[in-house]
Amino acid sequence: MHHPIITLLGILLPLFTSLVHANVEKTIFLGPPATTIPSEAPELDDLGLDRLSPQNGVVRTQLNASFPTAEAPEGTDSWFFLENLTPGQRYEVRICWLATQPTSFTLSTHPLPSITEDSTLLTSLSKFSASRLSNPDTNLQVNSLLRGSDTKAANDPAPTTDSVLFLRVRAAADYFSNDESLMRDVPSVAVDVILDPFLWNVFPRSLVPTAGWIVVVAIVAGVVARWVVGELGRVIEDARVERDEGEAKKEQ
C-alpha cells in the first residue's frame, strides 16, 4: 500500500507541470563593493545596455545566437548592466527561454575594473554596444522592463557611486536541422533575464511563494496522513474486536 503522503504528492505534483514553459540557466554571485562611476570607463549610459536592478529586475528581449566556432566556442556575446546592488548580498541572474528554441547559455559577471583591464572583455563589450547603438529602434523595442518599471527610470543617469556589475551572456545554438536556412542563419532567441536577490543570503526572493506552497502542501499532507493513520488504526481495532468476539462465541 502506498504511503498517504506519497499518494497526495502524486496527485498535486502534476498540477504544477503546466507551469514549466521554458529552460533556465543561472549564475549566483555577491554584490561587489561600491565603485565610483565613471572611473576610467566611458559614460555607462552611452553603452546602450539593458539595465537590471533589484527594483527593476526583469528584462524581456531577443538575444542573438550562433553555432560554436573556434573563435567563439560558446556562441554570441550579449551584455547587460546590473546596478543598485548591495555589497556582499547574494544575487542570482536567470535566463529563461522557450524549450522550442534549443540554446546553450553561459552566464558570467564582471566588475567594472576587470572590463577596463581585460582587452578581450572590453572588445566584446564594445562590439555589442556598437551593434546596439547602431539600431536605436531595435534598442527601444527590446528594452522593455517588467514589474511596473518605466522608460524614464530605465534611462536615468548612473549614480556617482554604486555597486555594479556587467553581465555577459553567451548564446550557442544547440540543435541540428535538415533546414539549411536554420543551419545557416540562427534565429534570435526570446528570453527573460531576471535579477533575483537572495533573502538573508539563503534563497531567492522569487521562491518565497513557492516555499509558501510547499509549507501548505506539507501541512495538508501531514493532516491527511494523520487522518489516514487514525482511520486505518480504527479499522484494525474493529477487526480485532470482531475476531475476539467471534472466538469468544466459539468457546461458549
Score class of each variant (00 low, 15 high):
Leu125Ser: 04
Val229Tyr: 05
Ser134Met: 06
Ala171Asn: 01
Gly212Phe: 12
Val164Lys: 12
Phe128Glu: 09
Thr210Tyr: 14
Ala153Ser: 15
Leu199Met: 10
Phe203Tyr: 14
Val164Trp: 03
Thr138Ser: 10
Arg226Phe: 13
Ser163Ile: 13
Val208Ala: 15
Ala225Gly: 07
Glu117Asn: 14
Asp174Pro: 00
His110Gly: 03
Arg184Leu: 08
Ser149Pro: 11
Leu146Glu: 14
Phe198Trp: 08
Val142Asn: 10
Asp174Ser: 13
Thr109Pro: 05
Arg226His: 10
Asp156Glu: 15
Gln141Val: 14
Asp118Gly: 05
Pro204Asp: 00
Ala158Ser: 15
Val228His: 06
Asn143Thr: 14
Leu125Gln: 05
Ala190Asn: 15
Ser129Leu: 01
Val224Ser: 05
Lys152Phe: 11
Glu231Ser: 02
Pro159Leu: 09
Leu146Arg: 13
Leu165Pro: 12
Lys127Met: 09
Asp196Gln: 06
Asn178Ser: 14
Ala172Arg: 08
Phe166Trp: 08
Ala130Ser: 15
Arg132Glu: 06
Leu167Lys: 11
Leu182Gly: 02
Leu112Thr: 13
Asp162Phe: 04
Met183Cys: 02
Asp137Gln: 12
Arg168Leu: 08
Trp213Ser: 04
Ser206Gln: 12
Gln141Trp: 01
Thr160Glu: 13
Val186Tyr: 04
Arg132Asn: 13
Leu145Arg: 11
Leu122Pro: 02
Val186Met: 05
Ala218Gly: 07
Gly212Cys: 13
Phe176His: 08
Leu121Cys: 06
Met183Tyr: 01
Tyr175Thr: 03
Val217Met: 12
Val142Met: 07
Thr160Trp: 03
Pro159Gly: 07
Val191Asn: 06
Gly212Asp: 08
Phe176Leu: 07
Leu121Asp: 07
Phe176Met: 05
Asp174Gly: 02
Arg147Val: 09
Val191Pro: 11
Pro209Tyr: 06
Pro113Asn: 00
Trp213Gly: 04
Leu165Gly: 13
Arg147Ser: 09
Gly230Ile: 00
Val202Phe: 15
Phe128Cys: 06
Met183Asp: 00
Ser124Ala: 14
Ser129Glu: 00
Arg170Gly: 02
Leu146Ser: 13
Ala190Val: 09
Asp150Tyr: 06
Ala221Pro: 02
Val208Trp: 11
Asn155Pro: 00
Arg132Ile: 01
Pro197Ala: 01
Arg147Gln: 11
Arg184Tyr: 03
Ser149Trp: 08
Pro111Lys: 07
Asn135Val: 09
Ser149Ala: 15
Arg168Pro: 00
Leu167Met: 10
Val169Ser: 05
Pro197Phe: 00
Val224Lys: 03
Ile219Thr: 15
Asn135Phe: 12
Ser114His: 07
Thr160Cys: 01
Glu180Met: 04
Gln141Ala: 14
Arg205Ser: 11
Phe203Asp: 00
Thr109Gln: 10
Val215Gly: 04
Ser124Asp: 07
Leu121Pro: 09
Ile194His: 09
Arg132Ser: 06
Leu140Ala: 12
Ile214Asp: 01
Pro187Val: 03
Leu167Gln: 09
Leu199Asp: 06
Gln141Met: 10
Ala153Met: 09
Asp174His: 12
Ala225Tyr: 11
Ile214Trp: 10
Ala173Cys: 01
Val223Ser: 08
Thr138Trp: 09
Thr120Trp: 04
Arg226Val: 07
Leu182Glu: 10
Thr123Pro: 00
Arg168Trp: 02
